[in-house]
Design a protein around this nucleic acid. Structure first.
Lengths: 216, 216, 216, 216
DNA sequence: CATGAATGAGATTTCATTCAT
DNA sequence: CATGAATGAAATCTCATTCAT
């Protein structure tokens, strides 16, 4: 890279508030995800985002608000990921398979989401409580699940008396836990769980578990 | 009050190092569980344990060592809980049912364990790595699981090709996640997940899911 | 809205440096009066004056210079107020009465002056020292006082051996203190000192006190 | 001073919480008096009191509470000073003379009091409002004044219709203002007001002014 | 054994001031 | 002429850790 283009790069990065704010948010998500609210350092966020503490405070007022903004950003990613799941095919079994796989993949591919949610839960949703507008997030998935289960039941493929919410929880659990607790699991099981093959195995098992449970 | 009786009053409350240390550990677990390593305050632990900071440092040298001791304490509880699981009955199906229920109950009844493990994982097992002696903990359960699955397979009750470690993960997931992520789940699902009935539903679903997966 | 009309809208509000500077000074006096030099915020002045910090710095260079300009503005108001006092009537008693009343009224009607002077004094005239040109301000009043006292003495109405400067101080004190220390006085005396009647009483007492002192 | 006594001095200063707190308060009064709440620096207080910031916060929680404690300390000095005034002699004129002198002397000898009160007033009693228990302070003086004026009136020495509270204000004004506004007065009058002779002149004038006002 | 006092390093937050357009 | 973005120095406040008794 020559001097000119470097200068230009800098010029582009500078004096663009929207972009600057985004850079801050991105760095903040990284830092909060990695260390949690208490462990995160504003200094580190300033440095990583190539800004400075004052600017962060100008835009976000406090560490807490910055955290909440980061959380919201994380949820936006989650929602985007879930909205892509297509379950309107003719075969309910196939649709559920896809749903379980997609849910699993979401957690597999977005460690930020897993970690931020974990931090939030382990702190008793200290901040989520304040930002309840985020609430409507998961539900699209729940609705999709509702439709496909009903369809499967009508077609005589799935068992009756399925508790939708608990099913939703279990589907999430089978993916989320694998990634959220990977460290202790790896130690206890003495196995590298980050290998593609291991991940694929867990994914397939989750699918089969859910489907064999549903099938009548 | 004269000097003597004052001394005696004091003597009653103190001068029992083992007990004092236990009080410190207990308070520390509470504090670390609630706020994580970074959020925990030595001051709070000193106050809750009715001791003082200097004493804590005398016994545990640093916040880090105190945390590790707390973690070990937590694991001791987990191990005790898991050792109670009796799976040596004649019926593999019944045994697996018990195993899943017991695992679930362990998490249901020991929020400290769930939270400490969560903290540890979300911090990349920062401290567990240092205390690898804790490692052997989970395995008894894994061995038990191994035996019962083999038996079920020999009896033609369970499917072939079961990945034991992943099965173990899934069984844990179905219980752990329900409690570790209760806060966000409750918000997203708009449902009180702490009610006994809801807990029982999740427990039963977990059992059925595992069993229907295993059955050939 | 097209580009032209937007430009015009803007043009209406801005592009008048003198007026803009005055707006800044006015806001600055308000802010400094209310919070003192250290407590005042450039941000607040920018906002209240509907300008921005850069502009303030362009016109005034530093917080300090802006403060000094504000102080000068305040003194201008004080001088204007004192210049109106007419004491050239034939009756010295009546003239003194007027002088005391006018001095009192100046403080009553210009809380900004009282507060700015107070701030300045409580800071050891930190800024006034740098702006000594303001010095000549008070003296007209002192000269007026000199003339009328002399006249009263010549007419045998006033006592001999009057220290002019101390008389001036006392006349000022009887008015100034009432307003400068109104808050603690109100608390200590448990009385609302801002009522018109209370102010009138203090004013009359001041007049009588000075006159009875002067009378031989 | 030899090495030994120095060591001893240090030892005395250390590990004595009450004394340490007093040292902090003393330094705080100095700093707040000199620079006001906003201008004062905790660092400076820590340094002057030979302690450190953490300790200050341990004892006083916040800059604000430290300020309030300092204010209370100042008022304690004021009260002590006023309580010494003896006005129960037989001659009301002499008693009033003493009262005016004592009031004047209090301000002359306690610049801390004058400055702290001034700071407080110029900030709209921002902190005094929170610490209203300090209220009862001035009143002893007011009661004393009440008694002696009544006596003078009964003896036919003083005029009727005296507003006690306003008289109290004026007496205070004649002393307080001289010291609170010394800086600007000195500049305007071009006179050194800190000389003993000047102070004495102002004091005598105050006495005479009050007495000539009171005399019928 | 036990305790309260003291400390220094570092965290969050604020604010006057400058830069770029 | 006017503006919003950006910055660095310094302020308040916190907290793990050590000292003295």
């Amino acid at each position: 890279m020559d001097a000119d283009s470097e200068t230009e790069t800098k010029r582009k990065r500078i004096r663009n508030p929207a972009q600057t704010q985004q850079r801050i948010i991105d760095s903040a998500i990284d830092e909060f995800m990695e260390r949690g609210f208490d462990g995160a350092r504003i200094d580190a966020i300033a440095e990583q985002s190539k800004t400075n503490k004052s600017l962060i405070y100008k835009y976000f007022n406090s560490k807490e608000e910055l955290y909440i903004a980061s959380l919201a950003g994380t949820y936006a990613q989650l929602r985007a990921s879930q909205n892509q799941i297509d379950m309107d095919g003719p075969d309910p079994v196939e649709s559920v398979r896809r749903l379980v796989q997609s849910t699993f993949d979401t957690f597999a591919q977005n460690p930020r989401i897993v970690r931020m949610l974990t931090h939030e839960n382990v702190q008793n949703a200290r901040f989520l409580k304040q930002a309840l507008t985020i609430k409507a997030l998961y539900t699209p998935l729940l609705d999709k699940l509702d439709r496909v289960i009903r369809k499967g039941q009508e077609m005589g493929l799935f068992r009756q008396s399925i508790d939708l919410k608990h099913l939703y929880i279990s589907i999430s659990a089978l993916g989320y836990f694998y990634f959220s607790n990977g460290y202790t699991l790896a130690i206890v099981l003495d196995e590298d769980l980050t290998e593609a093959a291991a991940i694929a195995r867990q994914r397939e098992q989750a699918v089969e578990m859910v489907l064999s449970y549903l099938r009548r």
